[in-house]
Simulated scan of single mutants.
Amino acid sequence: MNGDFIEALDQIEKEKGISKDILIDAIEAALISAYKRNYGTAQNVKVYINRECGEVRVFSVKNIVETVENELLEISLKDAKEIDSNYEIGDVVEKEVTPKNFGRIAAQTAKQVVVQRIREAERGIIYDEFINRESEIVTGIVQRISKGNVFINLGRTEAILTPSEQIPGEVYKHNDRIKTYIVEVKKTTKGPQILVSRTHPGLVKRLFELEVPEIHDGIVELKSIAREAGSRSKISVYSHDENVDPVGACVGHKGTRVQAIVDELKGEKIDIIKWSDDPEELIASALSPSKVLKVIVNESEKTALVVVPDYQLSLAIGKEGQNARLAAKLTNWKIDIKSESQYQEHSEDLIQEQE
């Protein structure tokens, strides 16, 4: 190695932010292994690299002892004093053993170490960047699909969209541009592993933050989300400014804002309701688009009996119970839905029992 190599390390330090001293220390450690591997020696050695000119020198290291038991690791006091009369028992003797052709091995090893350290540093930078972006949206391009996993190119790295995080029925094609939600960033030996989702309720939340400036600015607050990915989502919103309609802000002029989100989610229906402190009002709104006649709440058990017109019962419950299920998730209340006639029968039965 030579001065050009040291200059190259200086350049790497400036461009990549990797300390030259750390690189040289790593190269010295790697050269010890390279020396032992190439010259079949079991002795202790040290490697020194001149920080100015890049010269590499190898030294055997032996402890000074009274009785030598291992000539590779130890030297007698008598032999040590022939090298330097100041040596004493317990001192360490270093003797140069640099092979003639070691420069070529040193250069090859140094290159491998530098490339590896640069790769590690870049992985570290990518990890640091994405670990701070957990629970955020990223836009990427579908790179490849393998065993059901979709690999998404995010620029300097890629994310993995596993089958469990994919929207049911959604088809992903090479070069598709999609938005995903970062669920987790893991540090692995091969670099950061970024796990993303298309089904997470957080994706809906972040999409509304992108599309609705009032949410981004904190004027409108997204209170809760209930989602069955690929089918339907319900969100409750609240305005901190009485002059701003939270539902209207999320829907946008002629529905443009919510439609952009529906398009991104490939047609997933989204119900937007106004959040309320009053549980009766909140539960009635959560069962939208169904009309609600009455809500009877039990605060202690956090259960609610909801009465709807007879012709609206199936709408309130929804296909396979979806509307009622999402309303319960959104409000965090257990909801029992009855038609008007069912409720009247139930009331009459109670009266008769009391009589």
Rank of each mutant, 00 (worst) to 15 (best):
N243Y: 12
H240N: 14
S231A: 13
S233W: 03
S231W: 05
I225S: 01
A249F: 03
D245E: 05
T256H: 14
A260G: 07
H253L: 15
C250S: 02
C250A: 02
R257G: 07
E228D: 14
T256S: 15
V244R: 02
A229Q: 03
V251G: 13
R232P: 04
G248T: 00
S233G: 08
E221L: 07
S233H: 03
N243M: 13
H240Q: 12
C250I: 00
Q259Y: 13
V258G: 03
Q259W: 12
E228V: 08
G252A: 06
A249E: 09
V262M: 14
I219G: 09
S236A: 15
V244G: 01
L222M: 05
S231H: 11
E242H: 13
L222F: 01
P246E: 03
E242I: 13
D263E: 05
S239A: 10
K254V: 09
R232D: 06
V220S: 07
V237C: 06
S233V: 03
Y238L: 13
Y238N: 10
G230N: 09
V258N: 04
G248R: 02
D241I: 02
V262G: 08
V237S: 08
V262W: 12
R232E: 05
V237L: 10
H253Q: 15
E228R: 07
I235Y: 04
K254Q: 15
A229D: 06
V247A: 13
V251A: 12
E228M: 04
A226H: 11
G230D: 09
K254R: 15
S239Q: 09
D263V: 04
E242C: 10
V251L: 12
R232Y: 02
K234V: 07
E264K: 13
C250W: 00
R227D: 05
I225F: 01
G248W: 01
G255P: 14
G252P: 04
R257K: 14
P246N: 00
T256N: 15
V220W: 08
R227W: 05
R227S: 10
R227A: 08
A229H: 02
G230W: 03
Q259P: 11
I261H: 12
A229T: 04
S233L: 06
G230V: 06
G255H: 14
S231G: 01
K223H: 03
S236G: 13
E264G: 14
S233N: 03
K254E: 15
A226R: 10
G248D: 01
T256R: 12
Y238E: 12
Y238R: 10
K234W: 02
D263T: 10
D263R: 06
C250F: 02
I225E: 02
S239C: 10
A229F: 04
D245M: 09
Q259C: 13
V258T: 07
A229S: 10
H253R: 15
I219K: 02
V262N: 11
G248V: 00
E221W: 00
G252E: 07
P246V: 00
S231R: 13
R232G: 01
H253C: 07
K223A: 07
A226T: 07
C250E: 01
N243K: 15
D263L: 05
